[in-house]
Design a protein around this nucleic acid. Structure first.
Lengths: 201, 201
DNA sequence: CAAACTTTATGACACCTGTCATCAAGATTT
DNA sequence: AAATCTTGATGACAGGTGTCATAAAGTTTG
């Protein structure tokens, strides 16, 4: 019997999955929760065989949860189930050594099949995404540019950034200028956004 | 027998709902589609009793679809099923005279119960949202400000906007200035965003 | 060692942005 | 008719933004 914990914040999908998984003779949903924090508490008490986790959840994201599970070295597989095909997410998931990464755009049968495959030791990634693991563009930004863009993403102004990094206003603007050109966008906001989506921050 | 058409772009949820609705003896899913355009074509050919439609879908949004159905005066109820509690969406849905507006954060049983209620002529809105229909703030923007913000949302610059509206650069900036103050935000982008979310554009 | 590169800083330039005070023409109210 | 309101325009100001050329200091490479 495969014991599953389901962490997904959207009640309708969560309920539906639970109902449908219940029909599988070899699968048992031992818990379903709506946020990462709750999931983490349950997993520590009594680890399931596999956790299906959404990424965007309140309190603790699916990726953070995966990270914790990895660090605590719990005997529990992790499978990400998300809407988002962002390379950044996929990258982070790989860093956390998750066992599967599935898009919500796959049919349920595939989800179920994937659960079984993972329990047999395989690693599974949604087809469309598999390619992007190889084709991953490498980060054109240098350390300083990354640091600056991280602060831009938080909404800081040129001045605030310059204070935080102990650099001059002008220097910050130079880094932003080069970042903008490297990423082929038109403003610092856009730069921060695309760099974020690609997992470069 | 209640004949249902399901328009939802996320395959996993769509499949799950179809499977679960199939268990209800008085409900039949006659078609399931992944985008609004496809839904519209099918509905014209042979209208179902009720359409469950997501809002954010490719090609034709759920709200646009509702609009078309209303204008064509088809004998077909419309029920919005969405993640988003944005007052703007709800407002537009009401303008399209949809018969139900449900959040994906409701359980499936409620969804099913709602389908039956709607078929009996009731109108249903998710509990959390019902209040916001009464408490709706009124739009503080005037016509011109709205026109300008709509163009900002599309990403146009001050200059482009001024040409489109046959006004001066300066005038545009004045309208933006007042909009920004009325909405208590700090930039044209933010102004366009919050106005959009509230359904004022 | 000298040449070449990297990192950081500076100042100048053109342009955009939000605010404000003011103005003028037209419409509405008193 | 006079006072007031509305709509749009204008110019000025402070500040932000992106670009560029240039420079000093330190590091790496040939």
């Amino acid at each position: 019997m495969i014991r599953v914990l389901l962490a997904e914040d959207q009640q309708m999908l969560r309920g539906a999955l639970t109902s449908l998984l219940a029909f599988e003779p070899d699968i048992e949903v031992i818990a379903e929760v709506a946020d990462g924090q709750k999931a983490w508490e349950l997993i520590q008490q009594e680890p399931p065989d596999i956790c299906l986790v959404d990424i965007e959840m309140p309190h603790l994201s699916g990726l953070e949860l995966a990270e914790k599970i990895k660090q605590a070295n719990l005997p529990c597989k992790v499978m990400i189930v998300t809407t988002f095909a962002r390379p950044g997410y996929l990258q982070k998931a790989m860093d956390c050594e998750v066992h599967g990464y599935l898009l919500k755009d796959e049919p349920i049968d595939y989800l179920i099949a994937t659960i079984r495959k993972i329990m047999q030791g395989e690693k599974v990634v949604s087809k469309d995404l598999a390619a992007s693991l190889f084709m991953k563009e490498q980060n054109p930004l240098n350390e300083r540019e990354i640091a600056v863009l991280q602060l831009v993403k938080k909404g800081l102004t040129t001045n605030e950034i310059s204070k935080q990094l102990f650099l001059t206003k002008g220097t910050i603007r130079n880094y932003l200028s080069t970042s903008i050109q490297k990423l082929q966008v038109e403003s610092r906001q856009q730069a921060a956004q695309v760099a974020g989506e690609k997992g470069w921050l």
